[in-house]
Design a binder for these strands. Sequence first.
DNA 1: AGTTTATATGATAATAGATTCATATGATAT
DNA 2: ATATCATATGAATCTATTATCATATAAACT
Lengths: 107, 107
Amino acid sequence: MICKSYKSFFNAMADECKLSIINLLSKGPLAVNDVSRKLGYEQSRVSHALTALKDNGFVVGSRNGKSMQYSLEPKIMVPLLKLIDRHVETYHRSKCGCRGVRWRDMK
Amino acid sequence: MICKSYKSFFNAMADECKLSIINLLSKGPLAVNDVSRKLGYEQSRVSHALTALKDNGFVVGSRNGKSMQYSLEPKIMVPLLKLIDRHVETYHRSKCGCRGVRWRDMK
DNA sequence: AGTTTATATGATAATAGATTCATATGATAT
DNA sequence: ATATCATATGAATCTATTATCATATAAACT
């Protein structure tokens, strides 16, 4: 039995839904409903995804009245996104046919 | 349709097999067979995993006679592992019950 | 208290990903 | 050329993760 943290870490972001949420939150904090509407995902889908992201320390949530405000954890996300952007740019440009693609270009 | 690179990036490392291989290769380059024997994994399992890691630019392979020598791509792996180590240490220590765990402690 | 709005949770269904097995390719040596 | 060793590939199976649906909790307001 190994410490599962590393797996959990990567898994937390290895799908489109969570990546889109990260991308969206990179523009600013939002409530679950806002994310849900903006991305066209079901509420519970977003909630499950945010829980996973929160459990791995990528986002933080704070209650604001009836709603929850979620925002990226900048300490990890800023250097991580920067690193990934650079790497993805280098290694995947040709594969996906998108040149100069950036995180924020994702739909 | 979105650029799948980010997903692919994280997915490439989101399982125990690939993480163990990365951990092992962090000590130095190895051939497929060596990895296979040292980790007790099947040859084809290791090969599939290394292919995924290679396709995402985390390792490079170079032929050495009959065998292939695989090694980590230091440009991405050194800063990435450092970042992850720090983050995992911070956020998951309590969850997995291992204090001060490091990448190299994985079995 | 009851109603509405917002989010979370749990169980099942659906999907994506990994592992295995059999086999193919590639390199070296005889 | 063929035998052997090393790695890669493809398809089928197995497993893990995600999405959905129904429902529960939580806060605010009347």
